[in-house]
Structures are given as C-alpha cells and as structure tokens.
Design a protein around this nucleic acid. Structure first.
Length: 341
DNA sequence: AATCGAAGCAACCGCATACAG
DNA sequence: GCTGTATGCGGTTGCTTCGAT
C-alpha cells in the first residue's frame, strides 16, 4: 500500500557504483544471501539504500547475467513477446535467460522501437502505421519543394514521381492479383474478415519511401519558407491519379492507371501465428522471414519487393517455388500488367 | 582540437502489489 | 478488514561515450 520509505533517508550514497561497493555487495550476498534488502546495506557495510542494492545486484552483479549484444534470436523473441505482452519487461525477461528487464527495456527503447518505426510499424500495436498517408500530399509537395531548392530539373522530378507512382501501382496490382487466402503453413487470424498481407506491405513500402520525404519537414531551408503552399491543392492540375482502394484519400499524380480493385483490399488488422505455435509472429519477424512461399498465397513481405523488381523479367521465376512459373506466366500475360509494367 | 548533439545505458523515482501483523 | 512495510516493476533521468562538424 504505502510507499517505501527506504530511500528517503538522507546521507545515503547515490549514483554509479564503485568496484569496491560491488565487491562488498557480491561478497555479502555470496556469503549470506540477500535476505532482507532493507537490512542488507548495513550488514554489508554499504552506505546505500536496499533498493539501490537490489537493483545493482539484479541488473548487474548477479552471476547468471548474460552481457553483450542481443542475438537475432533474442531480438525476435523480444519482438514476439512484446507484441503479445506489451511493456511487461519482467515478463519478457523471464523468457530470456540471463537478460534483465532493465536491459531489455533499454534495448527496446534504443533499438527495436526505432527499427519498427523505420519499417512503418507502430511499436505499441505492432501494426502497420497508416496515418502517415493522410499527410502524403504535403510530403509530396515538400519533396517537390526540396527538388526545386536543390535546382533539379522539373523533368527529372516528374520522372522520379512517375517512377515511384508506377512502383506503387505495381504493388496495387499485386493486391489485385493475389486475393487473400490463408497459407497452408501458417494460420492467419484476424478480427475482421478482411485479410491481406500484400496490402499491408504496400503501406510499409510507401511509408519507407515517405520517411525520407518526411525528414524534409525539419530541414531549416524548408521550414523557413512558411509562405509556400504545401497543401494538397498545390498539386491540382495533375489529372491522372491512382485511387488506392484501402486509402481513399490518397491521390498520387502520375501517368499510370491502376486496375480496378477486385474485391475490397484493406490494410486491416492481421495476426500471423507461427506454424504449430501459439505465439503470434510480430510484423517485424514476418517481414524478415526468408521462408519460400507458395505463389498462390500471400508471400512474406520482404519477398514482394524482389517480386516487384522482377515483374518485368519473365525468366526470373525460379526463386518463388515450384508453382511460380505458371503464376508468373499468368501475371505477365495479363494485359493489365503490361499497361503498368 | 574543440564543440555539439545523438545514442546507449546504469541508476533512480514513484506507483502498485503482496504480505504480515 | 485495515494498516504499514517490503519488494517488484515500468517510466524517466542523467551521465558517459562516440561521431559529426
């Protein structure tokens, strides 16, 4: 109930521990165990509060502590567990022998959180962030402005925009070609009936694309030009656009027309469970998967990238499994695809 | 070489919970 | 059941290190 008074006492040392203090604490615990943490400092001859001693022991001096870099396996475990448990660091630490909750918390805050954000995932929900698209027109306009500032030609700029838009159109077309089907080797569960991994991927790809644009917001040379019109209306006059089925407000100026959506594709909630396992796979792990996928089902996200890159090459189909040739054949025969690619 | 800012990490703070009297 | 104490936990702070300018 009440708050611990143990650290209220004045005159107790705070701050970093010295090697001498460490030695005293270790020797005492090895000899007597920690017993009551409150009583320990006096018994061990330390001018610290019990809380501080406990923390030092559990986070640093305990003999079974594993120090050094986190392995990829540990990283994946943390991501998986965090997607289920949230910020329950001690619960997560209990699954990682030798790692402390404090260490995991720090690792999360300094590495994994940023990594997820960079990949376009919300670190708290582990789901793709889609809110960024509401500001897409502004970001494109900012990119436009930056290009002008950098004295690039308008033609070059338009070409780049078209290339990016074409890339997104390809992704949209993949959504169209691969209707949602649960893969045989995994169990995809969702709170709604709308499942589509590729739709999610296009969000991620676009998010990464936009990350570089978003950084321009903070550029002094851009932010100081407050009088410039960065609104979506500044892009009016460019007639052609791709209507993204799951992003109704998104309008990308380009010369490409995406095929009409076959069925509604939504970047909706999804959870992927590992084969035979009960723990959900985090989006990060899902994105990192290198398992070959049957081409009739939604592929792991990273492989879509190489898929898209090889769309124009009919001969490059060997890395997508046995059924790939016929699927790519169908894909490349589709006149709609040729319009895009 | 000096300065500055970002990143990493150890440690602290305060709240929540368990438990004993 | 109530109260006070001990401990655990998660958020936050601040120091140190490192790299860029």
């Amino acid at each position: 109930m009440g708050r611990s008074p143990c650290c209220d006492e004045t005159g107790l040392k705070k701050g970093p521990w010295t090697p001498e203090e460490d030695q005293k604490l270790v020797k005492h615990i090895q000899k007597h165990g920690h017993g009551s943490w409150r009583a320990l400092p006096k018994l061990a001859g330390l001018n610290r509060c019990g809380k501080s001693c406990r923390l030092r022991w559990t986070n640093y001096l305990r003999p079974d502590i594993k120090r050094g870099k986190f392995s990829e396996e540990e990283e994946q475990t943390i991501l998986n567990l965090h997607s289920v448990l949230g910020n329950k660091w001690s619960a997560i630490a209990s699954h990682l022998p030798g790692r402390t909750d404090n260490e995991i918390k720090n690792f999360w805050n300094t590495h994994l959180k940023k990594k997820l954000i960079q990949m376009g995932f919300d670190p708290m929900t582990h789901r793709p962030r889609t809110d960024i698209f509401s500001s897409l027109p502004n970001l494109i306009a900012l990119a436009n402005l930056k290009e002008l500032i950098d004295h690039h030609s308008l033609e070059e700029h338009a070409l780049r925009l078209q290339t990016e838009a074409a890339q997104m159109a390809k992704l949209q077309y993949l959504q169209y070609l691969f209707p949602p089907q649960p893969p045989a080797s995994s169990n995809i569960a969702t709170s709604s009936n709308q499942i589509n991994n590729i739709g999610t991927f296009s969000d991620i790809e676009a998010f990464n694309l936009l990350n570089s644009l978003a950084s321009l917001k903070d550029s002094p040379s851009v932010s100081s030009l407050s009088q410039l019109d960065l609104s979506a209306s500044s892009l009016q006059g460019i007639n052609d656009s791709i209507p993204f089925s799951h992003l109704p407000d998104l309008q990308i100026p380009c010369n490409y027309q995406a095929p009409p959506p076959k069925g509604m594709v939504q970047a909706s909630e999804f959870t992927v469970f590992s084969q035979g396992g009960n723990s959900p796979i985090s989006p990060f792990q899902f994105a990192s998967s290198s398992t070959p996928f049957p081409p009739s089902v939604a592929p792991p996200v990273t492989q879509i990238s190489s898929m898209v890159n090889s769309l124009g090459d009919a001969s490059s189909n060997s890395s997508y499994g046995e059924e790939a040739p016929s699927v790519w054949h169908d894909l490349l025969e589709d006149p709609m695809f040729h319009d895009i690619a």
